[in-house]
Design a protein around this nucleic acid. Sequence first.
DNA 1: ACGGGGTTTGACAGATGTGTCAAACAGGAA
DNA 2: TTCCTGTTTGACACATCTGTCAAACCCCGT
Lengths: 227, 227
Amino acid sequence: MPETETTILLAAKTVFLRKGLEAASMQDIAVEAGISRTLLHYYYRTKETLFRAILVHAVSEIIPRIASIVETDLPLMTKIERVVDNYLQLLLDDPLLPHFFVIEIRRDPQVLVELIRSRSGNFGALHRVQQQIADELRIPVPAKHALAHLFTSVYGLVLFPFLAKPALDEVFFGDDPQAFPRFMQAQKPIILAMLASLMKTPPAAPANGSPKAKKQNSPRRSPAPRR
Amino acid sequence: MPETETTILLAAKTVFLRKGLEAASMQDIAVEAGISRTLLHYYYRTKETLFRAILVHAVSEIIPRIASIVETDLPLMTKIERVVDNYLQLLLDDPLLPHFFVIEIRRDPQVLVELIRSRSGNFGALHRVQQQIADELRIPVPAKHALAHLFTSVYGLVLFPFLAKPALDEVFFGDDPQAFPRFMQAQKPIILAMLASLMKTPPAAPANGSPKAKKQNSPRRSPAPRR
DNA sequence: ACGGGGTTTGACAGATGTGTCAAACAGGAA
DNA sequence: TTCCTGTTTGACACATCTGTCAAACCCCGT
């Protein structure tokens, strides 16, 4: 018999990630959680409150891991490899996250960007690496936008398959739930090869594929937001 | 004084592309069109009817152009260049299309895929080129999924910047409405370079859309990751 | 001026959604 | 037992949404 609050958060995550704030209803979440709708309001007074909890949790789950990689002194391509690796692990567990962020980036970009900034350590440090990225790119771009070019390339390649997953299932994978994860494992070296081809400096070591990667789950559950 | 029906379709497109079927309301569309909500029901009896008109129009605007390119006998990389070029032209005019399709692919993949099939000429022909794509790819993948790998790579690179546009505006471009189109022009050779790096056969000619001739020495030094 | 047909609107019914409230239901302390 | 406190629910008020209908409107031919 799990705690009511964790039940609520789990159900809310499922529903919000699939539909976004606007299209999701408290009724949807109550049914998903198997409780009465009123109880949702008891724990989280409004839909926005509950949504905010899910949003903060989702951002906090991803951003710090990525920020800590970016802030290291590793070579650029090594950072990219680790970032891609981290995202793939995370997204294979939560394939709806890209869809959720796409919806919310459109609905209220300001709030979302601000939240990401707040969980990024010194996000401003990113602007300091812009020149560095511009120097490393084989194709010349204005330094001011070098980070944007790299960002859209990396995130486009990594996130898009998850956005298109329902169509891929329909056309290529049928009902086999293992097919998509296997596909993404095969896609990973393709992604890294494309990104590596942008760099002047070739990657240091092959080091890809799936080495002794320990299965790692997030060991911490942080299920207790306050109302 | 434009025709009421075109006014309605234009407003419906604006609202549906931004919010998708579920989150959009007939009221939203009526306000956008500057008419009464009842009038929408006069021209299109239900919301689904109106939505269907927009969906069919959006698909018909894109898919035949792409299908006609794919069905030619051009070399693979040439096809890709033309597909990318066509999408960029189209999406710079309608930057919300990727967002719309992402929402609707999740809401009802079956209907959308079926509609795309119906506008693709012989969509089945795509499966015939799978082996061809697999042979051309530098990184070995099962032929059955070769098209899926190429599809996610191309579409991820091309569509994602439009999905992330609100965040890019917020972080990089500020209020300058010209910045994003310029950015995409600069991103285009990056996209093509990444895709070309996947191919065994190098692209035939530079043949770049950018009028500024860039004397780019052929970057043959492609690091080929071995596994 | 007079009809008449296509166009447009206000008003309504019924469904669904959010948020509040008081009452019912625990289960442990005194 | 009774009391108390935290949990859960049903019922309500209010807003919004969809779809229908009859009435009003406009414009053109007669």
